[in-house]
C-alpha cells in the first residue's frame, strides 16, 4: 500500500446494492433548471441565497439549459399561454427527471380560479412533489426537496418503467 491508502485511510471494502448507489448519486447532485414563473420564483431565489443555502443539498448549480437539468421546479402560476412552453421544457429534459410543483397556483390554481390559468401544472406535466403555500417559505421548499430525495431513495431499477404516485407535502 503506498501513498493512496495513507491519504485516504484504509477504507477496506464497502458493499451496497446497485439501487442504493445509483440513488445516492442522484440525490447528492440534483441540478435544478434555472426557471421561474412568478412570486414563488422569488422565494426560490431566497432559498438559493445566503440564508437558506440550497447548495447544502448539492443543488447550487442551476442549469439554464433543460438538457442539463434533472429537476424542474415549477415556481408560480402557469397560464394557458405559458403551458406549451413548460411542457416543451419538460420534454427537453433528459431522463431521469423530476418535477416539484411549488406553491398553490402551480399545484391547483390557487387563488386564481379563472380563464387565464391552468388549474394545476399536473394538467400539463406529471408532478412528483406538491408544495403548498402562497408562496411557500424556503423551509417548505426545502422540505419538499427532502421529500423528493426520500422518494428517490425508494426508487429501484425495477420500477423505472412504471410511473409512481405523487406525494403531497
Amino acid at each position: 500500500m503506498g501513498v493512496i491508502s495513507s491519504k485516504l485511510g484504509n477504507l477496506g471494502v464497502v458493499t451496497t446494492t446497485l439501487d442504493t448507489a445509483i440513488n445516492w448519486g442522484r440525490n447528492g447532485a440534483m441540478w435544478p433548471l434555472l426557471f421561474g414563473l412568478a412570486c414563488c420564483a422569488i422565494e426560490y431565489m431566497g432559498t438559493q441565497a445566503s440564508n437558506y443555502d440550497l447548495s447544502r443539498f448539492g443543488m447550487e448549480l442551476n442549469r439554464a439549459s433543460p438538457r442539463q437539468a434533472d429537476l424542474l421546479i415549477v415556481s408560480g402560476r402557469l397560464t394557458r399561454k405559458m403551458a406549451p412552453v413548460v411542457r416543451q421544457l419538460y420534454d427537453q429534459m433528459a431522463d431521469p427527471k423530476w418535477v416539484i410543483s411549488m406553491g398553490d397556483c402551480a399545484s391547483c390554481g390557487g387563488v386564481y380560479n379563472n380563464y387565464a390559468l391552468v388549474q394545476g401544472v399536473d394538467e400539463v406535466i406529471p408532478v412528483d412533489v406538491y408544495v403548498a403555500g402562497c408562496p411557500p417559505r424556503p423551509e417548505q421548499l426545502l422540505h419538499g426537496i427532502i421529500t423528493l430525495h426520500e422518494k428517490i431513495k425508494g426508487d429501484s431499477i425495477r420500477h423505472w418503467a412504471a410511473p409512481q404516485e405523487a406525494i403531497r407535502v
Binding site: R80, K81, G109, N113, N114, Y115, A116
Partner: peptide, 19 residues
C-alpha cells in the same frame, strides 16, 4: 392572450371561467 384565443376576456359578458 395567445394569438388563437377567441373572445375578449375582460368584457362583462365573458365568463370568469372558473373550475
Amino acid at each position: 392572450m395567445p394569438d388563437d384565443w377567441q373572445g375578449h376576456p375582460h368584457r362583462r359578458d365573458y365568463p370568469l371561467g372558473y373550475e
